[in-house]
């Protein structure tokens, strides 16, 4: 044997000796360690659940949040009235918001400097403003500032929700448009399309695939923001879920209505979350145009 190969072997056996003495610890492979750590995490989780279950005062809890008779009393009005109104408010706000957002996004990408400024100011302003403030200004500020200015309740809610959602959606749409490769526009222009036709027939359809999942997310957020409509006050017919919940709590002197409306919000938002995931799987990860 050559001397080099001998020293090579010696080098390998050297660290093997301390390894052998530490056998019990070192025997755990990476996978086993991960298994153990996961086991500990599960144990902690179960422990927390058990402690909560033992500590909680169940009879009181059920008495204040889980009165079946009160919950049953809310039906079917909570679905036919309040849930329906929440969906209508959200849908109207979303459509208006989407329309404003598209215009603002195109202004933001415009070659005209003034448009870009206006769009930036609009986005920064409404993105930074709490939705509550927008509702207060729309519902109470404007009628004071412009006496005689009186819009139907539904329109006020629609505009407020539209303004709140449009700033976020404008940024989403802008990012989607910018994610479409520049070469797509160049090809369209070199075929004789005007810049607006290239935007409508080539860029926006491709941007749509990119922005659909985040837009669905925005719809979920907006569903929850629609609860702010309650501060405007409303007739019994015009109540959405949050307003109905508050009224029922006062009526029944019990907190069960909260649970009912919470479930109602989830009835709307969970399918939307699912839709968002489906859309993301379909369009989000894949290259636009991929089958």
């Amino acid at each position: 044997m050559s001397p080099t190969s001998e020293t090579g072997r010696g080098g390998q056996t050297g660290p093997a000796i301390p390894l052998a003495t530490a056998t019990p610890k070192a025997k755990m492979s990476k996978r086993q360690k991960a298994k153990l750590s996961r086991g500990i995490q599960y144990a902690i989780l179960i422990l927390i659940a058990v402690v909560i279950a033992l500590v909680a005062d169940w009879p009181t809890l059920i008495d204040s949040f889980g009165r079946v008779d009160i919950a049953v009393d809310m039906f079917p009005e909570v679905i036919t009235g309040a849930l329906k109104n929440t969906v209508i408010f959200t849908a109207l706000g979303f459509v208006l918001g989407l329309a404003i957002a598209l215009v603002v996004a195109l202004m933001r990408l415009s070659s005209v400097g003034v448009y870009r400024w206006l769009a930036t100011i609009y986005i920064e302003f409404f993105r930074g403003l709490p939705a509550l403030v927008v509702f207060l200004v729309m519902g109470f500020g404007l009628p004071v500032a412009f006496p005689g200015f009186r819009l139907p309740q539904l329109v006020i809610i629609m505009i407020a929700l539209g303004l709140v959602s449009s700033a976020y959606m404008a940024e989403t749409i802008r990012a989607g448009i910018q994610a479409v490769p520049k070469g797509q526009v160049e090809a369209a222009r070199s075929l004789g399309m005007s810049s607006s036709r290239a935007m409508i027939t080539i860029v926006l359809p491709q941007a749509m695939r990119i922005i659909l999942p985040p837009l669905t997310n925005e719809l979920i957020l907006l569903t929850k923001d629609s609860s702010l409509a309650y501060i405007l006050g409303s007739s019994v017919d015009g109540r959405e879920l949050a307003a109905l919940g508050r009224a029922e709590i006062v009526n029944s002197a019990n907190l069960t209505p909260f649970i009912v409306i919470a479930v109602c919000y989830l009835i709307i938002t969970i399918p939307l979350s699912y839709l968002s995931r489906v859309l993301e799987r379909k369009y989000g990860s894949a290259e636009p145009g991929a089958k």
Partner: peptide, 28 residues
């Protein structure tokens, strides 16, 4: 003036047929 690019720039959301017809119908 026809133009062919290094990176092809086919319209990714359209089929080959639509790539070839869209400008014919919408522009010409």
């Amino acid at each position: 003036i026809g133009m062919v690019f290094q990176s092809f720039n086919l319209f990714a959301h359209l089929t080959v047929r639509e790539n070839l017809t869209i400008a014919q119908t919408k522009v010409l």
